[in-house]
Nucleic acid binder design. Sequence first.
DNA 1: TTTTGAGTTGTTCGA
DNA 2: GTCGAACAACTCAAA
Length: 463
Amino acid sequence: MKTIWWIRRDLRLRDNQALTAALNHGDQVIPLFILDPTLQQSGYVGPQRLAFLYAGLADLDEALRQRGSRLIIRAGDPVEQLARLVAATDATAVYAEADVSPYARRRDRQVAAQLPLYLTDGLTVLPAGAILKENGEPYTVYTPFSRKWKSQPWSRAILPAPEQIATPDDVESLPLPAEPALPATVPFVPGEAAAAALLRRFRDGLIYRYSDDRNRMDLDGTSTLSPYLRFGMLSAQTAAAAAVEALQAAPHAAARKGAETWLNELIWREFYQAILYHFPEVLGAAFRPEMRQLQWVNDEALFDAWTAGQTGYPVVDAAMRQLAATGWMHNRARMIVASFLTKDLLIDWRWGERYFMQQLVDGDPAANNGGWQWTAGTGTDAAPYFRIFNPTLQGQKFDPQGDYIRRWLPELASLPANMIHEPAKMSVAQQRQYDCRLGEDYPAPIVDHHEMRPKALALYKVR
DNA sequence: TTTTGAGTTGTTCGA
DNA sequence: GTCGAACAACTCAAA
């Protein structure tokens, strides 16, 4: 009996429930990835994430070959491609890890209507629909969600990677997609082995300082595991188990707090996957109906300055250039630039949401949408609308010496720490001294934060 | 059923 | 320089 392991965002052999099910039900398994033109043409996928995916497929193919198997690549409409492959191979079942995005669920319903498709858990530690209030409704606030989540018996044994996978020899495959290639500036090595090494390193040290260091943009205080969780090169269960191992091994209270805080971040991920599952409409509009009528200004020139990292606010510009160069941005910086786009430039959060999806290697519809709606104040469990980040203060607090700014803004590299967050305050003599002319080497601020703050408050008052 | 306390990430102002 | 209050309104879950 042949079964198909349909790979979508679970590019791993270890702790993979779909692969395990396929192996349990067939003596031969066909690992399949379908290049779906609908996703690539959606306008939400940029070259960096696509390149990371393609490099990840090559890594997975290599791991499969070491086990006597290989990756089968097809391209086109998934329903049609699966039907063809089932007909050609006489496969009796298709196993895949369930996804929560509206597109994925519609696609999988269409497949299931024609073919024996079996969906497994694994995208999240606990299935997206599993955490409900006593009255059976979904949570819309994080803290009670997290309490309920933690009260569940969520831990289970990690499924080992299979040692051998038998795959029929006569299945046709397209070559592995190689273009676009992963730029050297993207600091993520694709694949399951790289993810495991990163997780070990984080669990054995950085996690104990996570509670304090995670907000510092100038330090490497975060796990940087998001691209791996995005493509399932690391299972959520494995990550959560590592958090608990660190919690148990923590030498003191501060270390325990670090591990606890990181586990909470994983639960935030679970929360936003659950929100998208229960409220798919958040992808197109504000979760809160009264927030759907906000009168954004939507100035395209200001948006272009934001994407280019030319706003005149150093921490905003450093973050936007980090994103363009590496496909990743520090989480604190994501909040700062999102607050700046919505509350200083008065631009619709959905413009920023789309741009992030185009740029981010870890771009995930649920987490990205949740983060943007939180900052914009339009979402579930939203930040209060009057909570407007001051980009200068945020820079001074979370990049105290300006090292993050200097890394990404070479034109400000020679400014001292007490000037680097407010280059617009330099005198002409200082501009000469630090070799940075305002308006030429670095832009003057494109808006005045202290003028825009009341305008944003007024925009949000109209409800 | 009703009441009550608490709730990721901040800033500004005035004492 | 530090500190507390104000900036709303609503959900959730325990009492």
